[in-house]
Amino acid sequence: MDLIKNIHKETPFQTAGPFLHIGCLPNFIGIPGIYKNDIGVDPFPEKKNKDFIKISGSIFDGNEEAVDDVLLETWQCDEDGNYFGLNGFARFVPDKVTKKFSLSTIKPGSVKSFDGKLYSPHISLLISSRGLNMSLNTRIYFDDDDLTNDPLISFIINNNNNDISSLVAKKIDKNDYLFNVFLQGDKETIFFDL
């Protein structure tokens, strides 16, 4: 039996365009009253702010200019390594003036995957914008964690011999991390075909 014949083709991507905020963050863009709340405003509404870390940074284009018309979405587990419900989903955009995004969330725990392997704490990041015919997937790891045994980091180093530093947020203060994304150029971030 040819199983492949029973697999249909995925609907292709198209760019999210410059006006994606209308559909994804209407209250934020000044279209009030349709949805009570934009989704993804707070990834862990039941947790206290004092437990949060802050991840900030910019998304740079090929001219190394920070862009502000991108939509960022993150998905992560809680501090115990559990994915559940809507917890751990966030949606945000860079600031119009500073061109910096800022995500306040809890530091994820290590997470055990189906194969029983333990992955170092990380946050999945999806970037959508005008000029991107497909949204881009990457991961945010943390430089104060031990990454040597992380199966994905090891996989990249063993198979592609890449510099993995673009996947790692730098600790710049007690609970503050810096994570910049480079869409192109010498510093181009590692993106994934999930």
Partner: peptide, 12 residues
């Protein structure tokens, strides 16, 4: 032109 990454994506 200024936004598309040039390197191959990593599959895992």
């Amino acid at each position: 032109i200024l936004r598309a990454p040039h390197k191959d994506k990593i599959t895992f």
